[in-house]
Nucleic acid binder design. Structure first.
Length: 583
RNA sequence: GUAUCCGUAGCUCAGUUGGAUAGAGCGUUUCCCUCCGGAGGAAGAGGUCGUUGGUUCAAAUCCAAUCGGAUACACCA
């Protein structure tokens, strides 16, 4: 339909000036805000009138004239300063029902944007020093829904988790486990032995028990050199199993786990540095003291630096610490070179808003390492406030008092967690209230959407009872005469459904998953409204016991609605409900 | 001090990349159950889109200031 309008605009412009060149995407065709005005509209007359030297109204008139040649166009009108509103005939809309039923979940696919190009999305990438907590929930869900969306527009998506299995924090983890291990063997441990860098959550004890089960008391009274490496590896593996299982419970599946330590062993850091060296992006220097923060212990020190300011960063970044070992950022350089080498020139990285300082340096790194051939997009998401019936839940990561992701999922379920995490724009903070999240009310939009889906299922069930059939074939729904669908409420629902592919496309391009729940809620609202109108207006009731033909026509519309709802929920990673059950 | 983000109805938020009279839910006021699940639906009230300029046919949206709020800012991960 949009193409039909575009062509009409082009032809109309040609009437006035044959040499006038217009590119297709200059012509904006969209749906009017007020649906009573028309089905599609274009502002082309206002945009081009001045350049053509005619009045907007004359151009609009010519566009209307062109459009009326098309059999699908019912009527056109000119409004305001020169908006062209187009009404499309109902047969066109009704024909969409069959298209949706035939295409099913493929209705929302637009392959030609990604063109099967590779795209890497890195998300979660939590330190393997503790279980996933609430902070990771939004990251995991955002990443997984974004992946689904990007696949819909034709990208070959690789979901990836970067394991920071190197550095001091891993040693602290191993030492913490060791303390609990010797405690299990009868040693008295005071809490003072856990310094501020160490981990004292309950999960440490669980790992210690596993160490004991596997190795017995062989590490007791042995120097650190004899157990540190073994416990590092053992602890990381335990934590990774834990993380993978938690992600699995949330419906998040990674394609690739990449180990930082492994990359270092392969010499990737040196390779990355060689590339930067060749471009003259590395030098020995001294970083200036950061302003604003009163760093008492600040001291100037010469370091190996990356000239990231050349690529738009605010300051240059250290690659080596003052003791000569690699910084964390050096590992990032290696990792992103690895991504580039694996053929990803499009990358997406999902980070919490507290990492906002990383955006520029990561973009600089990718740009420098790929000769500006690769591009990394970074999405920052705001943090989530957890509430218990309006009252904030206090968390202290230091004391090991934080809500784990597992606790959240166990309490409210995978589907509610996912919906809550992805229902807001990523730049907006989310209040996650444990009580309201599971309420069956309009405070909980997921319930409302699921209810619509369940109601549709219920209609199909009722149909089978009434007409005493075992199943409804797609062929019946495709072949039935749909001309009985004449009510505005019915046609409007089809119109809304017709925007679904566009909706998925725009959400994917903008990487804004929250648009999906917003749209699904609108669909659910139209459906609930239609349902209720059937109570007062009999011709709107879905099931007419005396007219199987009309009933099937209505059911075809419901089928199309159900397809869009369940496709949308599938993108969100949520299982559509066949019936609502309390508790 | 610098960077990133936010500011839209009493509250929580949408606003499809600059379009028409600004959109939902909660709350509030009123109405609708002999019903394919009322766990719903229909309607009313509620707005100087933080403020001031600028860009143009057109600004909540883009630009520049400015006010308020969140986060981050050597080395550590």
């Amino acid at each position: 339909m949009l193409q039909i309008v575009r062509n009409a605009v082009l032809t109309a412009i040609n009437h006035f000036n044959h040499d006038f060149i217009v590119s297709q995407n200059e012509i904006l065709v969209e749906r009017p805000k007020d649906v009573t005005l028309g089905d599609v509209c274009t502002n082309a007359a206002m945009v081009f009138a001045k350049r053509l030297g005619v009045t907007p109204h004359d151009l609009a008139d010519a566009i209307c004239h062109e459009l009326l040649h098309n059999p699908n166009v019912l009527d056109t009108s000119i409004a305001g300063y020169g908006f062209v509103n187009i009404k499309v005939c109902n047969d066109y809309w009704r024909s969409l029902i069959n298209r949706i039923i035939l295409e099913g979940n493929n209705f929302s696919i637009t392959n030609n944007i990604g063109n099967n190009n590779k795209l890497n999305i890195e998300f979660v990438s939590a330190n393997p020093t503790g279980p996933l907590h609430t902070g990771h929930a939004r990251n995991a869900v955002f990443g997984s829904v974004a992946s689904n969306l990007l696949e819909k527009i034709g990208y070959k998506v690789t979901r990836e988790f970067y394991i920071n299995d190197q550095g001091n924090q891993i040693k602290h983890l191993a030492r913490s486990v060791y303390l609990r291990y010797i405690e299990l063997l009868g040693e008295i441990i005071s809490e003072d032995q856990f310094n501020s860098d160490m981990y004292c959550g309950l999960y440490i004890k669980a790992i210690a028990q596993k160490v004991l089960d596997k190795y017995g008391d062989v590490f007791l009274n042995k120097p650190e050199s004899e157990w540190l490496d073994i416990l590092c590896n053992f602890s990381i593996n335990c934590m990774l199993d834990n993380i993978k299982s938690d992600l699995d419970d949330l419906g998040v599946v990674m394609d690739v786990y990449t180990s930082e330590a492994e990359l270092c062993r392969k010499g990737m850091v040196n390779e990355a540095l060689d590339i930067l060296q060749q471009h003259g992006d590395i030098y020995e220097g001294i970083l200036p003291k950061p302003k604003g923060t009163s760093k008492e212990d600040w001291e100037e020190r010469p370091q190996t630096l990356f000239k990231s300011t050349k690529y738009g960063d605010d300051v240059d970044r250290a690659i080596k610490k003052s003791d000569g070992t690699w910084t964390y950022f050096a590992g990032d350089l290696a990792y992103h070179l690895d991504k580039i080498r694996r053929g990803f020139n499009k990358m997406l990285l999902v980070l919490g808003a507290d990492h906002n300082g990383y955006v520029k340096r990561m973009k600089a790194a990718v740009s420098a390492l790929s000769n500006s051939q690769a591009d990394i997009e970074i999405r920052l998401y705001q943090l989530v406030n957890f509430l218990e019936n309006g009252k904030p839940v206090r968390m202290s990561k230091r004391k090991g008092q934080f809500i784990t992701l597992k606790e959240v999922v166990d309490r409210v379920g995978k589907d509610v967690t996912r919906f809550m995490m992805v229902s807001r724009h990523h730049d907006v903070m989310i209040d996650f209230d444990f009580v309201k999240a599971v309420e069956f009310s309009m405070d909980n939009p997921l319930f409302y959407i699921q209810y619509a889906h369940a109601r549709i299922c219920s209609v199909f069930k009722y149909y089978k009872e009434i007409f005493n059939v075992n199943d409804i074939s797609c062929r019946e729904l495709l072949q039935v005469d749909k001309s009985s669908l004449i009510d505005d409420n019915e046609i409007n629902l089809i119109k809304q459904l017709s925007f679904w592919p566009e909706q998925v496309k725009s959400a994917a391009l903008a990487i804004e998953p929250h648009r999906i729940p917003v749209y699904l809620r609108d669909i659910a609202a139209s459906f609930h409204s239609l349902w209720s109108k059937g109570k007062s207006e009999e011709q709107l009731r879905f099931i007419n016991k005396n007219d199987k033909e009309k009933t099937l026509a209505k059911l075809s519309l419901l089928k199309a609605t159900q397809i869009v709802l369940s496709d949308g929920l599938k993108i969100l990673g949520i299982t559509p409900l066949l019936e609502m059950t309390k508790d």
